[in-house]
Amino acid sequence: MLQPKYPDSPTPPPAHIHAPTDPAPVRRSVPSISVDRNTVAVVLVGGVVLTSLLAAVAVTAISVAVAAVVLRSLLSEQHRR
């Protein structure tokens, strides 16, 4: 029988000692996805279209900001005269 580590402890020793076992390795398999040329082409074209739309929005925002600055400066010069 095992002697308690701390004899003055009010906690009784465990009834049994659990010996951990090595867990079984988890085998995960990646589902196979068939990718053909048409799928790759569609993804590439979609990426190009979305990128060009984002660029168009950025250019439009910059041009609107420049126009606002120009109009503001023109209006402030009119008030000075």
Score class of each variant (00 low, 15 high):
Met1Phe: 06
Pro4Ser: 15
Lys5Phe: 08
Lys5Ala: 13
Lys5Ile: 13
Pro7Asp: 08
Pro7Gly: 04
Pro10Trp: 01
Thr11Val: 11
Thr11Gln: 05
Thr11Lys: 07
Pro12Leu: 05
His16Trp: 08
Ile17Gln: 03
His18Ser: 08
Ala19Asn: 13
Pro20Gly: 01
Thr21Glu: 12
Thr21Pro: 00
Asp22His: 09
Pro23Lys: 00
Val26Gln: 11
Val26Trp: 02
Ile33Pro: 01
Ser34Val: 15
Ser34Phe: 14
Val35Asn: 02
Asp36Pro: 01
Asn38Asp: 12
Val40Phe: 04
Ala41Gln: 12
Ala41Leu: 13
Val42Ile: 15
Val42Asp: 15
Val43Ile: 14
Val43Asn: 09
Leu44Met: 07
Leu44Asp: 11
Val45Gly: 01
Val45Gln: 11
Gly46Ile: 02
Val48Gly: 02
Val48Glu: 13
Leu50Ser: 13
Thr51Ala: 11
Thr51Trp: 04
Ala55Pro: 00
Ala55Phe: 14
Ala56Gln: 06
Thr60Cys: 13
Ala61Val: 13
Ala61Cys: 11
Ile62His: 08
Ile62Glu: 04
Val64Glu: 09
Leu71Asp: 05
Leu71Arg: 08
Leu74Val: 06
Leu74Met: 10
Ser76Trp: 13
His79Val: 13
His79Asn: 12
Arg81Gly: 01
Arg81Glu: 08
Arg81His: 12
